[in-house]
Simulated assay, not measured.
Amino acid sequence: MLLARNPDYAVMEVSDEFLRLKIEQECMREDMKNNVKKVKIDSSSELHLIDFSAYSEDFIKDFESHLSSICVGKLGKKLSLIKLRLREFLYSKDDNTRSGAIAELFIAYYLKNAGYKQEYLFFNLEEGSIKKGFDGVFSMKKKSYLMESKSTLPSTKNKSHRSKINEAYTDLKNYVEGRSKKGKNNPWRNAYNHASHCDVKTSQSIKKKLDKLADKFDERKYIKVRLVNIIPCSTIFGLTKDACPNQVAEDDYDYIKNLEANSKVILCIKSRNINDFISYLEN
């Protein structure tokens, strides 16, 4: 299901939450489990603390096994061509856009490893541009999620996961409720166009729901974020394995709990410097 049960929006019944968590556990590689801490905050909120600050040989090997499907879907391309396109894209952008793109790659990699299905292409349908709307749509069995990612550079002062999660959540809320100041694009239409690409292989039920929501958005019949399943994400760059721990203070749990949504999965990632990732692409 894309939204909470509602005669206008429900696609199908909510999947068993235990089954979803079981799939995550079974799909995730053993070495990644060691770099992930999950906190179940309440029945509709969970927090994933993810450490990507070390590019181990196993990490690189597994990341590369997913990279083509993340970027171009079922089409499949040689790894060297995917890395070339990524390099050329990142070379042409400023550091803020670079950090955002790399963060989205890591998020897609993590969620695919955890058993979620990616319902969009990382490479935008308009060559060289960034997506107009939600950063991504993911599904797990019968539930679908809207993903929004925010990131910080090493030079950012007073950086925190809470501030970035708040930015990501605010963007999702404003997009869904028709209050975004970032242009007049229909985010549901953009999501539908990605899901309709033949190499994404999105189910008909999800595509029909996205199309219906896009039509309602055009008619200015906006929905509330409390009906939606969401994945707000924060990535902090420039942290080594031994740097400050990847933490969200316990007094932030109430803040997460009080974010309106049908259900929410919060991702907080710490990563190496963006130039380290670009160096990887150049090798």
Results as ranks from 00 to 15, higher is better:
1 M>H: 10
3 L>S: 09
4 A>M: 06
4 A>Y: 06
4 A>H: 07
7 P>L: 09
8 D>P: 02
9 Y>D: 12
11 V>P: 00
14 V>I: 08
16 D>H: 09
16 D>A: 07
17 E>F: 10
17 E>Y: 08
20 R>F: 07
21 L>T: 10
21 L>Q: 11
23 I>D: 05
34 N>V: 07
36 V>M: 12
41 I>Y: 01
52 F>S: 06
56 S>G: 06
57 E>I: 15
59 F>A: 05
62 D>P: 01
63 F>H: 10
64 E>I: 06
66 H>I: 05
68 S>D: 05
71 C>H: 06
74 K>Q: 14
76 G>T: 01
80 S>N: 14
81 L>R: 10
85 R>L: 01
87 R>Q: 11
91 Y>N: 10
95 D>K: 12
100 G>Y: 04
100 G>T: 03
101 A>T: 09
104 E>L: 02
107 I>E: 14
108 A>E: 09
108 A>R: 15
115 G>T: 09
115 G>R: 10
118 Q>W: 06
127 E>T: 08
138 F>Y: 15
140 M>Y: 01
145 Y>A: 08
147 M>A: 15
148 E>K: 10
152 T>L: 05
155 S>L: 06
164 K>N: 12
165 I>E: 10
166 N>Y: 11
171 D>M: 06
173 K>Y: 08
185 N>D: 15
186 N>R: 02
188 W>E: 04
192 Y>I: 06
194 H>V: 06
202 T>I: 09
203 S>H: 03
206 I>P: 02
207 K>V: 05
209 K>G: 01
214 A>H: 03
216 K>L: 13
218 D>K: 09
223 I>M: 09
224 K>R: 14
224 K>G: 05
228 V>A: 09
228 V>G: 00
230 I>M: 09
233 C>F: 03
237 F>V: 03
247 Q>N: 13
249 A>R: 11
257 K>Q: 13
262 N>I: 00
267 L>V: 08
269 I>P: 00
271 S>L: 05
272 R>Q: 09
275 N>R: 08
276 D>A: 10
282 E>D: 10
